[in-house]
Design a protein around this nucleic acid. Structure first.
Lengths: 237, 237
DNA sequence: ATAATAGTGTCTCTTAGACAGTATTTG
DNA sequence: CAAATACTGTCTAAGAGACACTATTAT
């Protein structure tokens, strides 16, 4: 906490001094989904300067009467209509010049959503593929085109990918990108999409079944040309 | 980023509206060290309400002209005189009522320092042992006594411990808690202190040597009653 | 020599990867 | 039946834990 060694008077003085001169706080959201083995994020097109016509992450100011988590949930609700998704604080970005207009500190969150649940999108929003190029910040892809992100949002997305890959090793978060019931193959595909490389099928099956996190349903998927796989769900107990 | 769908005029209007009514931003520091197989953190005693006479984490306001990282480095410098330490952003705490005086969002950082380097402490500061009790927030210990932390700082310390334990699996951060040259036994002791349980000596040696992160120096430790161990350093290349 | 810790070699057990073989579905 | 994928069983290789043994130092 601030100013431990100062008196209350000093604190309030500092408070007054800073009252009209302090950073704004926003939350920015990396809403992630997977479509056809490609990682996609929800973006909104900027209609004004700065970064006019570029794609940016959805975000909004943190209000005085809401916590950071609540602000992130509210923005998510506004942009997607969704509640009940996996949402986690990612990192806080606070470079002085990250927004050219004014000093803004942004607390980034990421959400994992099955892409079906995001439709329909609000006007001005789109799901765009993440294009990674090693040793450079990611860009957005759509129909062969490549677009840069506004502000420092490419760095936010890059941090998000890192976190996601790290977490996959020991966390069950990939379930958030799938429907309630899914096959092991689907789960493996999502893992491969996030990690960017193929996984060993046998080993993946064994590990995920041994984890005890999945619940066998007895049902099988429908409409496949060949042998349908069993559907699993997240263990309730 | 905020307000993607609004016009610049709307943005500036919102800016004006928020100018006199927005959270303050501070950085709080969890400065960690190990003394005699116990995890210790640097605390400062509060001299005023709220939480008068309780121990708190050192912190300070983020200034307009400095980034979050720079603010953390500055506070660290002020409280310990140190630079060149392992310092990493931990998490951002933003509950509405976390400070009873006013709305403050705190970006927590943690630093790992060899305890010798922290001495002497500035007045009002102390190194206090972390006391963990399962399913409750940690408290501070000193000479048999147990003290609660001010504000939500116990939650910050708890988050820090979690992060530290998670990172130990695959990161070399424990080196920050040791002098430049150290023995494998010392490194293992630090790991055991952080994790809170014993490690297998053979396995630990193999893993850490195989990681390629250590550099053999040929030197051995001095002043031991029995066979001295070899000193290792962090690999420079 | 003895006590105590540093460091090495080897065995076993667990787990991941590889691969072969069986099961199930549609056309 | 053929094609394609789901699932099972087994072999192998790598790594972790256990343990025995050797090495080095002070008293």
């Amino acid at each position: 906490m601030p100013l431990d060694l100062q008196s209350e008077a000093d604190f309030l003085k500092a408070y007054d001094q800073n009252q009209f001169d302090r950073p704004s706080i926003t939350v920015d959201l990396v809403v992630i989904t997977v479509i056809e083995r490609r990682l996609q994020i929800l973006c909104t097109k900027r209609t004004d300067h700065p970064f006019k016509d570029l794609w940016a992450l959805p975000g909004g100011f943190v209000r005085m009467e809401e916590s950071l988590d609540q602000a992130a949930l509210r923005v998510l609700q506004q942009k997607t209509g969704l509640a009940q998704v996996y949402l986690e604080q990612l990192y806080t970005f606070g470079e002085v010049q990250r927004d050219p207009r004014m000093r803004i500190v942004s607390v980034a969150y990421y959400a994992l959503v099955e892409h079906q649940r995001i439709q329909p999108l609000i006007p001005g929003a789109a799901l765009l593929a993440i294009q990674e190029s090693s040793s450079t910040l990611p860009t957005l892809g759509h129909e062969g085109q490549s677009y840069p992100l506004a502000f420092d949002h490419a760095a936010i997305v890059a941090t998000c990918l890192q976190r996601l890959r790290g977490k996959l090793e020991y966390s069950p978060i990939a379930f958030g990108l799938l429907p309630k019931l899914f096959t092991l193959r689907q789960l493996q595909e999502v893992h491969e999409t996030i990690l960017g490389h193929k996984l060993n099928k046998d080993s993946f099956r064994r590990k995920v079944l041994a984890s005890g996190k999945l619940e066998s349903t007895g049902q099988t998927e429908q409409g496949k040309d060949f042998r349908p796989a069993e559907l699993y769900g997240l263990r309730s107990s």
